[in-house]
Design a protein around this nucleic acid. Structure first.
Length: 761
DNA sequence: CAGTGAGCGAGCTTCCGCTTGACTT
């Protein structure tokens, strides 16, 4: 057994460090946090100064047991990350392993190199309890907010919903962006472009410096151009430089991987994890842009050797984000000489991106010459501008994109006359703000200082699994675009259609998000404020600096927060459900109401309190609660509709249910996705019914009465009506007897209970 | 995601942050 036990957070890190430290040291990993508040219940004694009850997380029991075994007779060195969470991990390790936090050695290093680790071992300290307290305050505040706010939503909006310091702001951002888009007033204007000939007959493209707002003026201008003369007013060539971006942090990696490779945030992180585990890249969850001295040197060697010294420039980047904790380096390849790495094409592409970005960050700026030619139009105030751009020296463009094509302009002199070859005006439209994609939302959250590199991906999935946000492609709409062209002295007009608003994998809010956000903004404004996290972070910093006691900070926060919770419980469901009376039903004169019900948005006919029970209908497809009209609602109450009868004379009814439109014949339901239940004909319904009967027949492999063997999408299975069980691959389902089937059912594990799936908008 | 097609019932749900497996939804 080794004399020394070093505990780090990540097993991959442990492996590397063990190599550097030699025989006397054994290096093990805690796999992140080992203790936490129990998942069930608040576990905070508010009356006793917010005293938390921690437990060893169930999935970490094994880890703790192994660490206990390993520390016998060894000196322990706590080497978790040097940030708030890392310090807390060190302290929790002391508590779980029965080590004295005042005596146990605590070491930190920011880069995994032999010298950095040896230096750390030379300078041990003990656990910084102020920093630990700052983490406890953070942890407890998040629990208080999450576990007091969520139950309010269960009562007032819908069971199973959740709220939290991070996720509720993420949802709010998406809701508000969608509203901006909806309210956006599109403005149209005309962009005028022209092609000139120089006296040497060289082509010079140019664009009018200002857009023209209306069509008549655009047409008048083009007409004026027909008889005008054009003079070069000014020629200017300005040298410029462009510098590379910093090496990747987690959020920038997610953005660039989404933009250039089309990866989702989660996908990027999984691929990066593999690259990290195989030693190809440094740690992938970081907010730092700092490169180690060794990496900077290695980049210099590689660039000088491969591209020449003129391509190299040493750069150290400062991390912009003030909330950054900088426990790690920037994301970079561990060895720049490794041009390719990764087990599959996706990993390889991500590695390539990381390699290029990190290398480019140590390269010389690109040198660009920009030329601008200003052209006067006789008797007019408008001016044309020709823009050229030539890359004189590519610098970092060589490895990281930026490779736009040169636009070369012909040489001209001031005062020279130009001949107009062609001129046209294109209608353009102002664009609403863009919807967030996953990576764009992460970027915004980081900008607001909300969330951490390790939580960006999980947050994005949480708001989707809770049913607040949907990710999908947007269809776009057609619109008419006017195009004017000057031809032989006359202006020709034509119209074209273009599609606008189409977009891929963007985040859109559901009505659950609308209703929840409105409720939270109205009654818990301080918590969903965009500055809330930044404000409490200042308090956490004060605690870390020993200037504030964590109990005092929590007491102050909780007093106001809990008062809001109490008030929130008195809010009527009518208010939160955004109930809106659309008008009276012409037949029954009962009110038709649109509101957010327990199972999502719905239409209701009649009052909830009245003796006669109200009846309900879903919203029409693609219509929002706030937009639905009385006419649309009345249509929905025409369902269920009698379509006709089967050939045997049974009644066929059509309706819309939880899973879309269907027809019903007796007890049999047939999904009719793609058909309108209002319009489906008897003939169509009979066809679908026949198809369903045929499919049903094929599904039955054997029928023993209660127990049946059926064909499912995952192969044959046994069912007794309530419980299903898979049939093992090697057995022939058609030869099973009733007793065999019963045995399979009995041996199958009990059905797992799952939460209801989130209702769709 | 098989099949499912109701309308306040029982009991349950929930937070953020640190880190990887497990045998599968």
């Amino acid at each position: 057994m080794a004399k020394n036990l070093v505990i780090v957070e990540s097993p991959a890190k442990a492996k590397t460090i063990e190599k550097y430290l030699g025989k006397d040291y054994s290096v093990k990993s805690s796999f992140g946090h080992i203790r936490d508040l129990p998942k069930k219940g608040m576990s905070i004694d508010i009356a006793k100064n917010f005293a938390p009850t921690y437990e060893i997380s169930p999935e970490k029991k094994k880890v703790v047991a192994e660490l206990k075994k390993a520390l016998k007779g060894a000196e322990v060195w706590l080497a978790s990350d040097e940030d708030r969470e890392g310090e807390a991990i060190a302290w929790h390790l002391c508590e779980a392993l029965k080590l004295d936090p005042k005596k146990t050695k605590r070491i930190v290093f920011h880069e995994i190199t032999k010298s950095a680790i040896e230096a750390a071992i030379e300078n041990p300290r003990t656990v910084d309890m102020n920093l630990v307290d700052a983490q406890q305050a953070r942890r407890i505040l998040d629990r208080l907010v999450g576990y007091e706010l969520s139950p309010v939503l269960w009562k007032k909006v819908r069971p199973g919903l959740s709220a939290g310091r991070v996720q509720s702001v993420a949802v709010r951002l998406i809701v508000e962006r969608e509203r901006e888009i909806k309210d956006f007033q599109t403005q149209s204007s005309f962009k005028v472009t022209a092609t000139f000939h120089t006296p040497e007959k060289a082509e010079l493209p140019a664009e009018l410096t200002d857009k023209i707002v209306d069509e008549e003026k655009a047409e008048a201008f083009l007409q004026a151009c027909a008889g005008a003369t054009f003079t070069v007013k000014d020629v200017a060539t300005k040298p410029g430089t462009r510098n590379p971006g910093a090496p990747f942090t987690t959020s920038v990696l997610q953005q660039e991987a989404a933009r250039r490779l089309g990866y989702s945030v989660k996908q990027t992180m999984t691929l990066a994890q593999r690259l990290y585990e195989n030693g190809h890249i440094t740690y992938m969850r970081t907010d730092s842009t700092i490169l180690s001295g060794l990496a900077i040197k290695a980049a210099e060697d590689y660039i000088t050797k491969e591209y020449g010294a003129q391509y190299h420039q040493v750069r150290q980047y400062k991390t912009k984000d003030k909330a950054a904790q900088e426990a790690h380096e920037a994301i970079r390849p561990t060895d720049f000489r490794k041009v390719a790495a990764g087990d599959d094409p996706q990993q390889k592409k991500l590695y390539d991106l990381i390699w290029r970005r990190a290398l480019a960050s140590q390269m010389a700026p690109a040198q660009i010459d920009r030329t601008e030619i200003l052209i006067d139009v006789s008797d007019r105030t408008e001016q044309f501008l020709g823009k050229g751009e030539i890359v004189k020296f590519d610098g970092w463009f060589k490895v990281y994109g930026g490779g736009k094509e040169d636009v070369l302009l012909p040489p001209v002199q001031v005062g020279e006359k130009l001949a107009l070859q062609a001129a046209e005006a294109h209608q353009t439209f102002s664009r609403p703000p863009a919807r967030y994609g996953e990576a764009g939302l992460v970027r915004k959250l980081e900008e607001l200082g909300i969330g951490r590199p390790s939580t960006y991906a999980p947050t994005i999935s949480t708001i989707q699994t809770r049913g607040y946000v949907e990710k999908g492609d947007l269809q776009g709409e057609e619109r008419t675009v006017v195009h004017l062209a000057l031809l032989k002295g006359a202006v020709l007009r034509d119209e074209q259609t273009e599609v606008h608003g189409a977009d891929r994998s963007k985040l859109t809010p559901t009505s659950a998000a609308d209703v929840t956000t409105d409720f939270l903004v109205r009654h818990f404004a301080s918590v969903v404020d965009y500055d809330f996290t930044a404000t409490v972070e200042e308090d956490f910093d004060a605690i870390a600096d020993g200037k504030r006691k964590w109990e005092d900070m929590l007491k102050e926060f909780y007093k106001d927060f809990h008062a809001l919770v109490k008030e929130g419980e008195n809010v009527s469901r009518e208010e939160t459900s955004q109930a809106r009376v659309l008008g009276p039903d012409p037949k029954s004169s009962k009110p038709i109401i649109a509101r957010y019900g327990r199972f999502g948005p719905m239409l209701q006919r009649g009052e909830t309190e009245s003796e006669e029970k109200p009846d309900f209908a879903p919203l029409p497809e693609g219509v929002d609660l706030e937009d639905v009209t009385l006419e649309q609602a009345l249509e929905m109450f025409k369902l269920p509709r009698t379509v006709g009868t089967t050939e045997q004379g049974e009644e066929i009814k059509s309706n819309i249910g939880r899973y879309g439109p269907y027809i019903q014949i007796g007890k049999l339901f047939v999904s009719i996705k793609g058909h309108d239940p209002m319009k489906i004909t008897e003939e169509e319904a009979r066809e679908l019914y026949a198809a369903k009967l045929k499919q049903e027949a094929e599904r039955h492999i054997a029928d023993f009465g209660k127990i049946k063997i059926l064909n499912g999408p995952y192969g044959p299975y046994v069912t007794d009506g309530t419980k299903n069980a898979r049939i093992p691959k090697e057995t022939d389902a058609t030869k099973l007897t009733e007793t065999d089937a019963k045995k399979i059912l009995d041996e199958a594990p009990a059905k797992k209970r799952f939460g209801k799936r989130a209702a769709k908008k």
